[in-house]
Computed example of a mutant assay.
Amino acid sequence: MVELNPNSLVGAQQVTPVLLVIGTRPEAIKMLPVVRALRQVPEVDLKVVTTGQHRQMLDQVFAVFGEKPDIDLDLMTPGQTLGDITCRVLKEMEALIAEHNPGLVMVHGDTTSAMAAAMAAFYVRVPIGHVEAGLRSHDIQRPWPEEYNRISIDAMAELLWAPTSTAVLNLRAERPAKHDTTRHIEVTGNSGIDALLHVAKGLEGDELASIDVALDPSKKLVLVTGHRRESFGGGFGRICDALVEIAKRGDAQIVYPVHLNPQVKQVVEERLGNTSAIHLIPPVDYVQMVALMQAAHVVLTDSGGIQEEAPALGKPVLVMREVTERPEAVATGVAQIVGTNVDGIVAAATRLLSEPDHYERRARKVFPYGDGTAAQKIAASVAAFVKKAQNSKDQAR
């Protein structure tokens, strides 16, 4: 008996396998709205792949969006180096691509796992789609190694979904349109705003009750996050010194969910653990983080995602880095680069805590990264891409 291939039947729905790779929690936050949108595209057989990094935090984010990974590579090992991550992701993704024969591999942002997954696809000539393409600090060392990773992914990708027009200009500057006939670049906004608005809408008001910290309603909440490799060592020491000075004011309380990386956790706990106005807490889930941002008076961060999210909530942001690949938020006046200099951090925070007029000018809801429809735009782009690819195959037969 001859078995018929359903895809060879006239009028049958053509389906293309697509692998979407998620490594860290920030990637999950921004990719899960895209996952939900792609689940509704009939031409796509989506497989969500996790590398196994940030396992506990990943599980929390997946639960928020009612999703589960289809494939877990379980690559997380204690003390792994960037080289370890690159080699293991590259090897495992190579095998996965051979097994599933995808028509597209999708990655997000600038992590080493995203770069290695893209490289695995590139080596076997499978098209790559890059969510959040075109971000640049224009300093290869800052953030490190993220700036290299995103440049590398963009050089390999065929579909580039840029969050802003500035990101498009960065891509075009690196490869002018007249020399770039194979790539599709599209401004979609940032899918992180999709995730933020989804979660903020569902907050019920008691999300902070589950956080093990006694907040004083009479004091202004300063929310801090910090984890960048470029600040390991002296940078984190200076950040800690600045936070101690801010805590001495008496009218502010600092909440710092401490990243699990030992090079962050050890320094922060040693330097800040005995300061009464500073609350060091374990990493919080994404819903709790959004609730903390909403409750905050000001946010101090080196996180890229929070530089996008806090402005959408109307919260002033002090960026504890020397450069940023997100200049759009700085241009609005809501975000300010303060570096890791003690005096710079303290002076900027003091103005926001002490000068109501200055605070009101900075505490405005702005949306330089989109209106919450990025995931739908990306899904539509993927649908058009797989249809075009399938039509080309049909014509070649």
Rank of each mutant, 00 (worst) to 15 (best):
G250E: 01
N5F: 01
P356V: 00
V342E: 10
T350C: 02
G250T: 00
A242C: 10
E174C: 10
V264P: 11
Q307H: 14
K220W: 05
I337R: 02
N341E: 15
V346Q: 05
S165A: 15
E230D: 02
T81G: 02
D180P: 08
P217I: 08
A384I: 01
L32M: 14
N5E: 12
A98S: 09
Q336R: 14
K248N: 06
H108Q: 15
L73F: 04
R228D: 08
G339H: 06
G66K: 02
P368Y: 04
A37H: 06
T50Y: 08
N5M: 07
V48F: 10
Q80G: 05
A348N: 06
T182L: 14
A118N: 05
S231N: 15
R364P: 00
I29L: 12
T301C: 10
P145L: 10
Q53I: 12
T77H: 04
A155T: 09
A114R: 01
V41C: 07
S191M: 04
N274T: 13
I211W: 01
A348H: 07
V35W: 02
A375C: 03
G205A: 04
P356W: 03
M31D: 07
N170A: 09
V34H: 06
H184M: 10
Q266L: 12
V126Y: 04
Q336G: 01
L19C: 08
L208C: 04
H100T: 14
Y359M: 03
A247I: 03
E328I: 11
T182Q: 13
E322F: 02
K178M: 11
P282I: 12
V267I: 15
R142E: 11
K68C: 01
R25T: 11
G52E: 13
D285R: 00
I140R: 14
E3H: 08
K68W: 00
L38S: 11
Q53C: 10
G129H: 03
V222P: 03
N170L: 11
A247Y: 03
L73V: 09
G305N: 13
G235Y: 04
G103A: 08
G109W: 08
A396R: 13
T324V: 12
L82R: 00
A312M: 11
T373C: 02
V386K: 11
E322Q: 15
V15I: 15
L4V: 15
D357K: 09
N274D: 15
A177K: 12
G103L: 08
G250F: 00
K220H: 10
R238G: 00
D45F: 05
R228Y: 02
L221Y: 01
A37K: 09
A98E: 13
V34P: 05
V224E: 08
E270T: 14
Q266C: 02
P257L: 06
